[in-house]
Nucleic acid binder design. Structure first.
Lengths: 127, 127, 127, 127
DNA sequence: GTGGTCTAGACCACG
DNA sequence: GTGGTCTAGACCACC
């Protein structure tokens, strides 16, 4: 798994960690029953504080994406894949919706909007 | 002018005030030379803290959207309309870019993305 | 409000704080729109770390019991009372259910069980 | 003996093992002098770590429920039956007490409490 | 003043 | 080794 943390985009680090786990589950990179990297390992890899990772994991646990296996770590739950896929799509869909609402509100035409979208889609370099 | 403040959507109140002023300028609701409502009046209308309004106005002043008119208040500058229009477009364009990057990063295909965009565009009810 | 923390009963402190807030809401001690004590104030009152209080409050926020009012604190939501009442009852009901199941499993008669319950109910001194 | 381990209900695995041995003794499933399954056998049966079984047995030994028989394993002591029965009852009684205290603390009336207890008692299906 | 985030380091129970 | 809890203290944005 390749995780990247951006400490200067306003999104809390723990949220980025949680999302990346969810996205990994959604896209099959992490399967049901598989263990997620340990708190300490993940903290080391990302060069962040273990508590921050723990917070992300706690959130995932609250959402039913992972569950503790006592003494051995956190495992992806059975219902995680479904949850993560829909969560991922909802996240993207809502943001698209919001920006389109604002675009309309500031009197951009649908044509202009589509043009911008297509421009950005062509930009394969968008990481 | 009809302004609405949402105190629980994460966007700072002062930012909401500033944006709504800018959008009003961009779409002709506020014209060059026109005075913006006084800090006190605006604070009263929106039932928010005058400091918050003052902060929004200060930001607009820094960006050259409004300027002080000695003894009477803040007026929309000559170059405001252009500024606001381009600011508005940049804001929209950047947000579209961001969400598309994230969509890609979460393994959505361009096709899926376009589908969502088109769905939302058809949704004329999006306020 | 009178809150008590028991640091040696195994229940996490943050959980105790969260429950006591919920119970206060459920029983009308905290009403819709009212602010809960600030993180720092609560931490001082209970002589615990502010982070621990913050964690309890975050949990309540996740559950929709309170919501942040930017810059001024946390307020009890509209739907909190209903939520808290049912959460409180479910919590008690589930625990009663669990213990009764175990009682039966260890071959106690219903009569014996009722006797114990009545004994404990008469014990008005049970704090 | 039919033991079941639930690794995700918060109760430590070793505690579950110990309790199930005690309940078996209390209800006659294991009689004085009888040998309990070996650590290895039990670990294999329950698919858990031998250390965990060893810990449960150690606890039972500390409580005088089982004792080592040189060269052959652990046997149920003479006083075990009495011990286990009273331990079982105390466990139940304490839990009932605790939940009733909490029920009162959350402002439930005695009437409400009794109603819930009676409901649960009628529920003969509670395993 | 408010909550939110993050770091650092300690201790615990569990396997 | 694992996660969970708690403390302590710092910094931030917001009102």
């Amino acid at each position: 798994m390749f995780f990247k943390i951006n400490t200067s985009n306003g999104i809390p680090v723990y949220e980025q960690v949680a999302r990346q786990i969810m996205f990994a589950v959604a896209s099959g990179g992490l399967e049901t029953g598989e263990m997620v990297p340990s708190v300490r390992q993940m903290a080391k890899d990302l060069a962040i504080n273990p508590n921050t990772v723990a917070r992300a994991y706690r959130q995932l646990q609250d959402q039913g994406v992972v569950e503790t296996v006592r003494g051995s770590g956190l495992a992806v739950t059975r219902r995680a894949a479904t949850k993560c896929k829909s969560a991922r799509e909802k996240l993207i869909r809502d943001r698209i919706k919001d920006v389109l609402i604002d675009a309309r509100r500031s009197q951009m035409s649908d044509q202009e909007i589509k043009k911008i979208v297509n421009e950005q889609l062509k930009n394969k370099n968008n990481k």
